[in-house]
Amino acid sequence: MALINPHINFNGNAEEAFNFYKAAFGGEFSNVVRFKDMQNSELPLAENEVNNIMHIALPIGANTLMGNDIPEFMGKVDENENRSKISVSAESKDEADKLFTVLSAGGSVEMPIGDSPWGSYFGMFRDKFGIEWMIEYAG
C-alpha cells in the first residue's frame, strides 16, 4: 500500500522552515538536495538561487514531511493560499503508473511520470478538483 506524505512549497526559505520543523519534531533530514546539485541548461536559475532547496525530507514517524523552494522563473507561491502537494510513495512502478493515470484523469499534468534526474520514478499533476499530487517510486 502506498504512503501519503505532505509536501510544502516555499519562496526561498525552505531550509529555515525545515530547521524549525526539525527542532519541533526531532530527527535528522533523510535527504537534502540543492538546486546547484541538479543544475543544467533546462533549469535556468538565478545565481542567488543555486543554494536553495530543490528537495528536503524530514521523517516523522512512518511518514515524511517534504518540501522545496520554488525557483523565481516559476513564480512565487501565495503563502496565504494552497502551497502544498500530496506526495504519494508507491511500492512499485506499476502502482505509481496506476495512481498517476487514475488520479490525473481530467486534470492537468505538470510533469509526466518517468525517470527523474534525482534517480526516482516521478510525476506531478493537478487533479480535476484542483488538488496537486506528486507520485514517486524510489525503487
Rank of each mutant, 00 (worst) to 15 (best):
L3G: 09
P6H: 01
G12E: 03
A14G: 02
E16A: 15
F18N: 01
N19I: 13
F20D: 02
A24I: 15
F25T: 11
G26R: 13
G27C: 13
F29T: 02
S30F: 05
S30C: 08
V32I: 13
V32Q: 04
F35L: 09
K36C: 14
D37K: 09
M38N: 06
S41E: 13
L43G: 06
L43D: 00
L43T: 14
L45R: 08
L45N: 00
A46R: 12
E49L: 10
E49S: 01
N51P: 12
N52H: 12
I53E: 00
M54T: 01
H55T: 00
A57Q: 10
G61R: 13
N63H: 15
L65H: 09
M66N: 01
G67Y: 04
N68M: 14
N68S: 15
P71A: 08
F73P: 06
V77N: 02
N80K: 15
N80C: 08
E81A: 12
E81G: 07
N82G: 05
K85A: 10
V88H: 00
V88R: 04
S89G: 06
E91K: 07
D94W: 03
D94F: 05
E95Y: 02
D97H: 07
L99C: 04
V102N: 02
V102Y: 06
L103W: 01
S104M: 00
A105D: 10
M111S: 03
I113H: 00
G114K: 11
G114N: 11
S116P: 06
G119K: 11
S120K: 01
S120M: 08
S120A: 13
Y121I: 08
M124I: 02
D127Y: 06
K128L: 02
W133Y: 08
W133S: 09
I135G: 10
I135P: 01
E136S: 13
Y137K: 10
Y137G: 09
G139S: 10
G139Y: 10
